[in-house]
Amino acid sequence: MIVTQTRFRGALLDPTQAVPEGLLDGADQPAGRRFAVYRNNVVVSLTEALQVAFPLVYKLLGAQTFARLAGIYVRAHPPSSPLMMHYGAALPGFLETFEPLAHLGYLADCARLDLALRAAYHAADAPALAPERLQCAPEALVGMSLALHPATRIVRSRWPLYDIWRLNNEADAPKPRAVAQDVLITRPEFDPSPHLLPEGGALWLESLASGQTFGAAHDTALAAVPDFDLAQALTLALQTSALTDDKTKDD
């Protein structure tokens, strides 16, 4: 009996399928439990990869619930790449429609925050924008294009996402407020960290990232959020190394 990789794989991810005939133990008997070693390795190793990738989701769910979620997810969404640093990209969308955890409405955004932190960790290195670069005539500043640092990520949420992160990562963090919070993730050196964005800040940074000039991005943010505080958003962006210098054009 020839055991093709298609047959092997089918039984590997579906424990209700019989162990393929043609697989033997040392006494030439059907492999039985020995096949379960591979079944177990796949699910356990992928569950561990998800646990590393989603520390906030793991903390919120606890080990048992996380393992049950992972057991279902890894069979529904096996990796499409050998780079475990990319595995789990579909988890936020999966959580959006996962009935057993529907009562935790904020969970999908927590997964997005975990993914953003991991992406920032592995992102390319680049110099942060030095504040002195913005010390120029107002007309020049308005026309300037600024790029986001390659490690910078923005997660918009209708949940108090930043407060939820703090509550699970800082001692004596306050209880989450009942507000929507957008989160900025930056990586000044090697360790990414989340920051609470002021209202309109996410749109302002996304406008800069899309190529709008400093002045146009300000106008975009103001149009959506009339009391958008540019000074506050800019200070946060500079202090957290959210911007980079390598694509800066001051014409």
Partner: peptide
């Protein structure tokens, strides 16, 4: 082997 079609199975299979 560890890849089947577009899937990566994250184990060293025999």
């Amino acid at each position: 082997w560890s890849t089947h079609g577009a899937e990566f199975l994250n184990d060293l299979l025999p």
